[in-house]
């Protein structure tokens, strides 16, 4: 799966998790950029991502994420 396809799927997941109507998502986006993206919704986001891609992350992997691009890379690496 390409990084771009993962990003598109992430966008759909985030719209549901954050319950928002629109979302501009780029690899540079961080939690700071999205009002609804707080520590609690972050937990739900990780769970939804795990479910969607059929993965389980370690806490150390989650803790290292800074941007959406980092998450895309992590999914890409783990799904490979």
């Amino acid at each position: 799966m390409s990084a771009d396809a993962i990003l598109q799927q992430l966008r759909e997941i985030m719209i549901d998790v954050l319950d928002i109507d629109e979302l501009e998502l780029t690899p540079e986006t961080t939690a700071e950029d999205v009002e609804e993206w707080d520590s609690l919704s972050h937990v739900r986001l990780v769970v939804a991502v795990e479910r969607h891609f059929g993965l389980k992350f370690k806490n150390s992997e989650i803790e290292g994420l800074k941007t959406v691009g980092d998450l895309v890379n992590l999914i890409e690496a783990r799904a490979a």
């Binding site: 937990v43 739900r44 769970v47 479910r51 806490n59 803790e63």
Partner: peptide, 14 residues
């Protein structure tokens, strides 16, 4: 346990 350690979630979010 991972969710408990990281965010004190009492059980698996699923």
């Amino acid at each position: 346990p991972g969710h408990w350690h990281a965010s004190k979630l009492p059980f698996a979010p699923d």
